[in-house]
Simulated assay, not measured.
Amino acid sequence: MLLVVVLLFICILLYILFIINYFLGDHSKKSKVVILTIPLAIVLGFLVWQFSVSNHYFIRSSDLSKETVVGMQLDELTTVKQLNQVGEYERNIQPDGFMYDYGDLMIKTDTSHRITSFSTNWGLNELEEGDSLNKVKAIYGDHYYTYKEMGLGKAYVFVDRELDWVLTVWTQEAKVRYVWISTM
């Protein structure tokens, strides 16, 4: 984030200097336009780059089709019997469905009991708490974006465009701590 601020400050300073040069310098009209355009292009290019590396619309798709949690998968209808087999839970009514809280696992469904997300530190099929970041990349590939969330660590986000699923893997010290997989 500091790099972003420093680069923006430098670009703004350059732009101000070029504006001063525009009015005080003895240059042709064409060179003045080019000189004014350079810092603006740098700032716009930087903003586009920042937006593209921190947004799931600009990354390639990852295959998340085999991901299950406790034998259940996103977009499946779930039953009370399946939920009871996982263990004791607390059911919370949400505006758009239900949340089943098992402590270390949360399952969210819509009003028709179709699973819309899992949040857990239990892990997924091949991924468990404590696994290395290298294992995450080996399983899901290098097509992700990252961000930091206070208290959870650094998030690595993978997107499956065919299924419209998003997998977020939170890491601390390059180790998996928590995963969240949801529909978009």
Rank of each mutant, 00 (worst) to 15 (best):
L40F: 11
A41R: 00
I42A: 11
I42W: 00
L44C: 06
L44V: 15
G45I: 04
L47N: 05
L47Y: 04
L47K: 02
V48F: 05
V48E: 01
W49T: 05
W49E: 03
F51I: 07
F51D: 00
S52K: 13
V53C: 00
V53M: 01
S54Y: 09
N55W: 02
N55D: 10
H56A: 10
Y57G: 12
Y57F: 15
Y57E: 08
F58A: 01
I59T: 02
I59A: 05
R60L: 13
S61N: 08
S61D: 09
S62C: 05
D63W: 04
D63M: 07
L64R: 02
S65I: 01
S65V: 07
S65T: 06
E67Y: 03
T68R: 12
V69E: 01
V69Y: 05
V69I: 08
V70T: 04
Q73I: 07
L74R: 04
D75Q: 13
E76W: 13
E76P: 03
T78H: 10
T78P: 07
T79D: 08
T79E: 04
K81E: 15
Q82C: 10
Q82A: 14
V86D: 06
V86S: 01
G87H: 01
E88V: 12
E88P: 00
E88R: 11
Y89P: 06
E90Q: 14
E90N: 14
E90H: 13
R91E: 15
Q94D: 09
P95T: 10
D96V: 10
D96C: 03
G97N: 07
G97C: 07
F98Q: 00
M99V: 14
M99A: 15
Y100Q: 12
D101F: 06
Y102G: 10
G103W: 10
G103T: 13
D104V: 15
L105N: 03
L105Y: 01
L105D: 05
I107N: 05
K108A: 06
K108V: 10
T109A: 00
T111S: 14
T111F: 11
T111A: 14
S112Q: 14
S112R: 14
R114G: 10
R114K: 15
T116N: 13
S117P: 02
F118N: 06
S119A: 12
S119C: 00
L124P: 03
E126F: 10
L127M: 03
L127S: 02
L127I: 08
L127F: 04
E129M: 14
E129L: 10
S132M: 08
N134D: 15
N134Y: 05
V136S: 03
V136W: 02
K137M: 09
K137I: 12
K137Q: 12
A138V: 01
I139E: 07
Y140R: 05
Y140D: 08
D142M: 14
D142L: 14
Y144S: 08
Y144G: 00
Y145F: 15
T146N: 01
Y147W: 12
K148Y: 11
K148L: 11
E149Q: 14
E149H: 04
M150K: 15
M150A: 15
G151V: 09
L152W: 09
K154W: 05
A155M: 08
A155H: 10
V157H: 03
F158S: 00
F158D: 03
D160T: 02
R161Q: 11
E162P: 03
E162C: 01
E162F: 10
L163W: 07
L163F: 02
V166C: 08
L167Y: 04
T168V: 12
